[in-house]
Amino acid sequence: MMTQTKAADGHLFDCWIEPAKSERKGGIVILQEIFGVTDQLKGVAAIYAALGYEVAIPALFDRQERGVVVPFDKGPKGRDLMLAAKLDETMVDVAAAVAALAKNGGKVGVIGFCWGGGLAIRAAQTLDIAAAVAFYGTRLPQYLDRPLKAPMQGHWGTQDDHVPAEMLAEAQAYLPQMEVHTYTAGHAFANDARPSYVPDVAAKAHARTQAFLQKHLG
Rank of each mutant, 00 (worst) to 15 (best):
I57K: 03
V70K: 04
V198D: 12
A202G: 05
A100E: 02
V70N: 02
K74C: 01
R139H: 04
G118M: 05
A84E: 00
Y136F: 10
A132K: 09
K149N: 14
V44C: 03
D128Q: 11
K42G: 01
C114P: 03
H216V: 02
A7T: 12
G36W: 01
A97L: 09
Q32N: 15
L87V: 15
T184M: 08
T126S: 15
V70E: 04
G157V: 05
G116E: 04
P199Q: 11
R63Y: 00
V68Y: 00
D14W: 12
H162R: 12
E166P: 01
V94H: 12
A134M: 00
A130Q: 09
A84K: 08
G137S: 02
Y197T: 14
K215T: 15
P176T: 07
R146I: 11
D88S: 15
T90L: 07
L31F: 12
I47K: 10
R79G: 12
G67I: 06
P71W: 08
T5Y: 15
G26R: 04
A99Q: 15
H162F: 13
K215M: 14
L12W: 00
I17E: 06
A96T: 13
V70I: 15
E166C: 02
E179Y: 00
G10R: 12
E54D: 09
E179H: 06
A193F: 03
T182V: 15
Q142C: 09
S196V: 11
A84P: 00
G52K: 02
N104F: 02
P76T: 12
Y143W: 08
D39G: 04
F35A: 05
H162Q: 11
L217P: 03
D9K: 06
A20Q: 07
Y48Q: 07
T138E: 09
Y136R: 06
H187P: 09
G10A: 08
W156E: 14
A96V: 14
I28K: 09
D200Q: 13
Q40P: 01
K149D: 10
I47L: 04
G52R: 01
D161F: 08
V201D: 08
Q142V: 15
I129Y: 06
A169K: 00
Q40G: 11
Q159Y: 10
L83R: 11
D200C: 07
P151N: 14
V94D: 12
T158R: 07
A97G: 08
K103F: 00
L217I: 09
A56T: 01
P71G: 05
A165R: 02
P58N: 07
I57H: 02
K6C: 10
H155R: 03
P19V: 06
Q40L: 10
P147G: 09
H206Q: 14
M1R: 01
A171N: 11
K103A: 13
L41N: 01
F72C: 04
A56L: 02
R139P: 00
E18W: 07
